[in-house]
Amino acid sequence: MQYSVGVEYALHCLVYLIDVPSNESIGIKDLAEFQGLPETFLSKVFGKLSKAGIVSSVPGVKGGYRLSKSPEDISFWDVIEAIEGTKPIFQCKNIKDNGYLYRENCCKPTSFCTINSVMLSAEEKMRDELRSKTLSWLNKELDSVLSKQIREDTRNFFSKSKT
């Protein structure tokens, strides 16, 4: 399983929205320009984020998007679920029920699949880890791994696009 690039772009763009004052927003055009993306692609990503209640849209010429929740309340898993949906990664097809013994009618198939159980347990552990990482955590992490100049230049890019 591979998450789409939309998850990565969503997480990056959401970090840019953290410092936006509550009465302002950032437009898709500016977010797309900063990321080097087509606006149409990012619009689809933000449509999913909006539907999930992660961002809200602000209509009008100076409109755009802003966070709908506190950065502490938006986890990586929330973003993944918004972009990718809720289906489990592993899709058990109960192929065990087509095995030799079951075809020969000597044994009844059981409904329990050990492989499915292990896969679902592993997925839950991954989801728990992704739930533990929030936009607030990411923002702090970026402060420690990126230079102050890069962080300031990023904020300035979006501040200047409002003028």
Rank of each mutant, 00 (worst) to 15 (best):
Y3P: 00
C113H: 01
F157C: 05
V79Q: 03
T86N: 14
L130M: 15
Q35R: 04
F34W: 01
L49F: 03
T114N: 09
E72N: 12
M119V: 09
K125Q: 11
L42N: 09
R155Q: 07
K125E: 00
T40H: 02
V61I: 13
T40L: 02
N116R: 01
D97M: 06
T114E: 11
I80Y: 09
L14Y: 04
V45A: 07
N105C: 04
L101I: 06
L14K: 05
D30H: 07
E123H: 03
K160M: 08
F41M: 01
P59D: 04
E129K: 07
N23F: 15
M126T: 04
T154E: 06
I74F: 04
S144L: 14
Y100R: 04
L11G: 01
L31N: 01
R155S: 10
P109S: 02
S43F: 05
K133Y: 14
V145S: 07
A82E: 03
S111R: 07
M126A: 11
K48L: 15
S147T: 13
K51N: 15
K69G: 03
A32G: 10
K140C: 07
K160G: 06
R155M: 11
Y102H: 10
V61Q: 14
V45I: 12
L130A: 14
S147Q: 04
D128R: 12
Q2P: 06
S144K: 15
V79E: 06
T110R: 03
V15A: 09
L37K: 02
I80T: 00
V118Q: 08
Q35C: 02
E124L: 12
K108F: 09
Q2V: 10
I115P: 01
S50H: 04
V20D: 05
G64Q: 07
A10L: 01
S144Y: 04
Y65M: 08
F34N: 00
V45K: 05
T110S: 12
C106E: 00
W137V: 12
C106L: 07
W77K: 01
M1H: 13
L31G: 04
T163S: 15
R66L: 07
P88V: 01
R127L: 08
L49Q: 03
K133I: 15
C13W: 09
E8L: 15
K96Q: 12
S68G: 11
S159I: 07
F112G: 00
V61T: 14
S4E: 12
P21Y: 14
L142N: 01
I115Y: 06
Y3L: 15
E141R: 10
L138S: 05
K87L: 10
F41A: 09
V118F: 11
I28S: 00
K96R: 13
K93N: 10
E72D: 02
T134M: 12
R103T: 06
L11C: 08
H12L: 12
S43H: 07
K29W: 06
L146M: 14
S159P: 03
F158D: 00
G47T: 06
K44M: 04
K44H: 08
C92V: 03
P21G: 05
S57L: 11
L146A: 09
P38L: 02
F158A: 08
K140D: 13
K125I: 04
S4K: 10
